[in-house]
Amino acid sequence: MSNKFELEKSVTDAFLRSKGVTRYKLIRPESDPPDIIVQIGDKLIGIEVTLIHNSQSQIRLENSYIKVFSRVRELLIKSGIDNLVIRVESEKIKGLQMEKCAEVIVNTCLENLNRIGYRRTELIKNPIPGIKKIVAFRMDEAGIIITFDSRSNTFGPLRSDRIESVIEDKIRKLNKAKQEAPKQHSCLEENWLLMTIAGTFYSNYAGVADDRLSISLENCYDRIFVYHEKKNWIKEISAGLKVV
């Protein structure tokens, strides 16, 4: 799926099914916003889909570990390993020694290779600053997979100020669109904001810090959701006008 609409359609489809909605039609709108129109019976709902990151520091951390994981895969393949899943519980640290982390992960796996089976096996705790735990297991098909440990709470909840910032930006965008194309928006019975969590495949986001937020603009969305597609959880957000 290379174009934006198909990606947004896929996310919306997964979101609706996670909510238990099974009968609906997804329609491409004439202009943006909304990103997609959902028809449920005779009701038309405009949905604005946006990716939300925990923070720029989170993104940098993930990118650093992606490089570590790539190096681990390279070293393991050279060692003749071809069917292993490794999950690393990482921690935030300044000046991450990427090459050293990669060597520690590889050496830990090689030293414990005989006891790694098809069940999740804990190999080591706190071997080096930046890594809290390394676990591994084998799989039937050939391949090396290295990811973040999905059971860890390393990255914590999404901060309220980050979510508030996204909501306010989308409110401005929707209000402007309603002014410029009132006829198109008059046919929509509701407008939803769908914020989807972005990041690497096994990045752990424990939820949202607060589901009742105070924002500086009057909310024009009927419903606001945070949705984690990989972990399949949905949190509805209540956004009220901040009292000055």
Rank of each mutant, 00 (worst) to 15 (best):
residue 172 R to S: 08
residue 30 E to D: 04
residue 235 K to R: 14
residue 41 G to C: 09
residue 151 R to K: 09
residue 215 I to N: 06
residue 104 V to Y: 01
residue 147 T to C: 14
residue 18 S to M: 03
residue 20 G to N: 02
residue 227 Y to K: 04
residue 137 F to M: 13
residue 148 F to H: 15
residue 90 S to N: 11
residue 67 K to S: 14
residue 189 E to Q: 12
residue 11 V to R: 00
residue 125 K to S: 10
residue 110 L to T: 09
residue 79 S to R: 13
residue 44 L to H: 06
residue 229 E to F: 11
residue 143 G to D: 08
residue 215 I to Y: 07
residue 69 F to A: 02
residue 161 D to L: 06
residue 82 D to W: 14
residue 211 D to V: 08
residue 72 V to S: 13
residue 173 K to Y: 07
residue 128 I to C: 02
residue 98 M to P: 01
residue 144 I to Q: 06
residue 2 S to P: 06
residue 100 K to L: 14
residue 10 S to M: 01
residue 105 I to L: 08
residue 170 K to T: 06
residue 186 S to E: 06
residue 53 H to I: 02
residue 234 I to N: 05
residue 19 K to F: 01
residue 215 I to T: 11
residue 223 R to G: 14
residue 157 P to T: 08
residue 217 L to T: 09
residue 122 E to I: 07
residue 182 P to Y: 08
residue 138 R to V: 13
residue 71 R to A: 11
residue 119 R to Q: 12
residue 181 A to Q: 07
residue 244 V to A: 15
residue 34 P to S: 08
residue 209 A to G: 02
residue 118 Y to I: 11
residue 83 N to R: 15
residue 185 H to K: 05
residue 60 R to H: 15
residue 181 A to G: 01
residue 114 N to K: 14
residue 234 I to Q: 00
residue 206 A to Q: 10
residue 223 R to A: 15
residue 16 L to C: 04
residue 151 R to P: 00
residue 172 R to W: 04
residue 193 L to K: 04
residue 73 R to N: 15
residue 118 Y to C: 00
residue 167 I to E: 07
residue 173 K to N: 03
residue 36 I to M: 10
residue 123 L to H: 08
residue 100 K to G: 00
residue 113 L to H: 05
residue 168 E to Q: 12
residue 157 P to I: 08
residue 173 K to M: 04
residue 193 L to R: 03
residue 195 M to G: 10
residue 116 I to M: 02
residue 174 L to D: 01
residue 139 M to S: 13
residue 47 I to H: 01
residue 168 E to S: 08
residue 184 Q to V: 03
residue 13 D to M: 09
residue 221 Y to T: 13
residue 173 K to T: 05
residue 61 L to K: 14
residue 122 E to W: 10
residue 71 R to V: 03
residue 47 I to L: 02
residue 118 Y to K: 11
residue 191 N to P: 06
residue 62 E to Y: 13
residue 46 G to L: 12
residue 135 V to R: 15
residue 207 G to N: 09
residue 25 K to W: 00
residue 35 D to W: 13
residue 29 P to V: 04
residue 88 V to A: 04
residue 193 L to W: 06
residue 214 S to R: 14
residue 208 V to N: 09
residue 162 R to P: 04
residue 74 E to L: 12
residue 57 S to N: 14
residue 173 K to C: 01
residue 76 L to A: 02
residue 233 W to G: 15
residue 80 G to R: 05
residue 28 R to C: 00
residue 159 R to I: 11
residue 155 F to D: 12
residue 33 P to E: 07
residue 65 Y to N: 03
residue 32 D to C: 00
residue 72 V to R: 09
residue 128 I to G: 11
residue 137 F to I: 04
residue 129 P to C: 03
residue 57 S to R: 15
residue 55 S to G: 04
residue 21 V to S: 02
residue 36 I to L: 04
residue 115 R to C: 06
residue 161 D to G: 09
residue 123 L to V: 03
residue 170 K to R: 13
residue 226 V to E: 15
residue 69 F to P: 01
residue 222 D to Y: 12
residue 176 K to D: 12
residue 152 S to R: 00
residue 64 S to R: 01
residue 112 N to Y: 13
residue 48 E to F: 02
residue 30 E to K: 15
residue 125 K to W: 10
residue 13 D to L: 07
residue 30 E to N: 06
residue 5 F to H: 01
residue 143 G to A: 03
residue 148 F to M: 13
residue 163 I to S: 07
residue 136 A to Y: 06
residue 165 S to L: 09
